[in-house]
């Protein structure tokens, strides 16, 4: 028994998920639904990574984008007014021809570029965590460290910005 037919089917489902959810994020009128569908799009994208043999990237995709960033966005959305008369999808509702032309102008070169790739040989089993770790900590060690310092600076900055004033200082400022 061969299971070769499974992979294209899974790919089709995931591709439909990515594109459908992505389109819905842009076209839907409700912010919360958009945020949640964005999470679905990220999840399908993680499935794509798994199909390509990059399980670690898939895991990080879910961990960071679904587990952290979407929650942050939903946090923000919860404090905005819901169901108002303002439309969040102005562009696509009012100017279909312009939007279609713009999308085509971007999509056609991308598709042509994508078709120019040859299918790479599938990776032998054994997972991708070791190659990934080796390349991150040897070939790209400098870039990795620079990114780490940048993130650390951003984190310290966020903490300083959100820190509540000491009561003495607050009263001094009030005077």
């Amino acid at each position: 028994m061969r299971f070769d037919f499974v992979e294209p089917v899974v790919f089709a489902v995931l591709a439909f998920g990515v594109i459908g959810a992505g389109a819905a994020v842009v076209l839907l009128n409700r912010v919360t639904a958009s945020a949640l569908l964005m999470a679905l799009s990220f999840l399908c994208m993680a499935g794509m990574f798994v199909l390509l043999g990059a399980e670690t990237i898939a895991a990080f995709q879910v961990l960071i984008y679904v587990g952290a960033i979407t929650v942050l966005i939903i946090f923000g959305v919860q404090f905005t007014k819901q169901g108002g008369d303002r439309s969040y999808a102005l562009f696509f509702q009012k100017q279909y021809p312009l939007a279609a032309a713009l999308v085509a102008a971007v999509a056609i070169p991308v598709v042509l570029f994508a078709f120019s790739f040859n299918a790479p040989a599938p990776q032998p089993g054994g997972g991708d965590i070791r190659p990934l770790a080796t390349s991150v900590f040897t070939d790209f060690a400098f870039a990795f460290e620079v990114a780490s310092v940048l993130l650390l600076a951003a984190m310290v900055g966020a903490i300083v910005l959100t820190q509540r004033d000491e009561p003495e200082e607050a009263t001094r400022r009030r005077r």
């Binding site: 587990g67 919860q78 054994g126 997972g127």
Partner: peptide, 23 residues
Amino acid sequence: DIGLLYLTTLGSMTVLGIVIAGW
């Protein structure tokens, strides 16, 4: 071979459901 990472990843997804339920 990333079983541990997989488990942490799934653990982080529970938050989404709880926040959505609350909202």
